[in-house]
């Protein structure tokens, strides 16, 4: 009988507690979704759970190590041959690029333009894909301690992967180009047409919005970063146009783009420093707001 009364007593207090916590949670969600006051809490908590994260990575590391042990010699040989091939190819390209760089430098000097800075680079390993279906974000093992800066673009061997949106001490979060509404300023490589490509929320596709029906853009066009805005350096490949739907009942063409970076298939990314040497744009929202909106 005593247990029963205790039970009812607790139950009434539990209800008011629940209401209090629900209200608190909802206000936290509202604050986090609309404003950015919770970023310091986020950073603090991230540091606090860093040791747990390290422990949780052990199974994945073990799995990788074990599967490496069981890699056969044939596979290694095949990979070796492939890498050699890539090596020779890129040597040739590098030579070409070096001469082009010198030529470009000379031309820029002749025309009296500001020289472009070579962005510095950091290799980072992806340690997590977040399990939240709302976000296409990955967490990497480099943070402010390793010289990562907020807004730094991340690339892989094929193209643009994303951008650092949250910076912690030992880790940082990259919003992938496929993250819903993640914008990247691009140019069509064929004709220099400037536009912006947006993520739609799943890995296989991006879209170009607000292009008029008669815009000169067609299937197979390569989109590369334009360098405008100063976040992404110019001429990094972003995607390839897969479908252009010019339905005249809509004001804009619907343009689907396939990202060229191996989104969701890599372990390492290359972080570039922000290449902004331009004077700040008047009344431009800062980089973080642009990422959020």
């Amino acid at each position: 009988m005593q247990a029963k009364t205790a039970f009812f007593k607790q139950r009434s207090s539990i209800k008011s507690k629940l209401l209090f916590y629900i209200a608190f949670c909802i206000s936290l969600m509202y604050t986090d979704a609309r404003f950015k006051y919770l970023e310091t809490i986020r950073t603090g908590v991230t540091i606090a759970i860093h040791p747990l994260r390290t422990v949780a990575l052990i199974p994945a590391k073990l799995f990788n190590d074990i599967s490496e042990v069981f890699t056969t010699t044939t596979e290694l040989r095949r990979e070796n041959a492939r890498l050699k091939q890539i090596g020779t190819d890129s040597d040739r390209l590098l030579l070409e690029q070096k001469s082009l760089l010198v030529e470009n430098e000379n031309l820029r000097n002749l025309l009296d333009l500001i020289p472009k800075v070579q962005p510095s680079q950091t290799v980072a390993e992806i340690i997590y894909y977040t399990r939240d279906p709302f976000s296409r974000e990955v967490i990497i093992d480099r943070g402010s301690q390793n010289g990562v800066v907020l807004g730094a673009p991340a690339i892989d061997a094929y193209g643009v992967v994303g951008q650092v949106v949250r910076l912690h001490r030992w880790t940082s979060e990259i919003s992938l180009v496929t993250h819903r509404d993640h914008p990247v300023p691009v140019q069509v490589a064929r004709n220099g047409l400037r536009t912006i490509v947006f993520g739609v929320g799943y890995d296989s596709s991006l879209e170009v919005r607000f292009m008029p029906i008669d815009a000169d853009i067609k299937e197979g066009d390569t989109l590369a970063t334009s360098g405008i805005g100063g976040v992404y350096p110019a001429n990094l490949p972003v995607g390839q146009v897969t479908k252009v739907d010019r339905d005249e009942s809509f004001p804009f063409a619907r343009i689907s783009v396939k990202p060229v970076a191996k989104i969701g298939k890599h372990r390492q990314v290359l972080l570039l420093s922000r290449s902004s040497t331009f004077p700040p744009h008047p009344e431009q929202p800062n980089a973080d707001e642009r990422i959020r909106d």
Binding site: Y21, I22, I26, M29, T31, D32, T46, R53, T130, D132
Partner: peptide, 16 residues
């Protein structure tokens, strides 16, 4: 925080 999602949503889920 670990998932990089909006703070409070999992708390709400767990509590209710």
């Amino acid at each position: 925080v670990a998932n990089g999602s909006i703070i409070g949503q999992t708390s709400l889920l767990y509590l209710v």
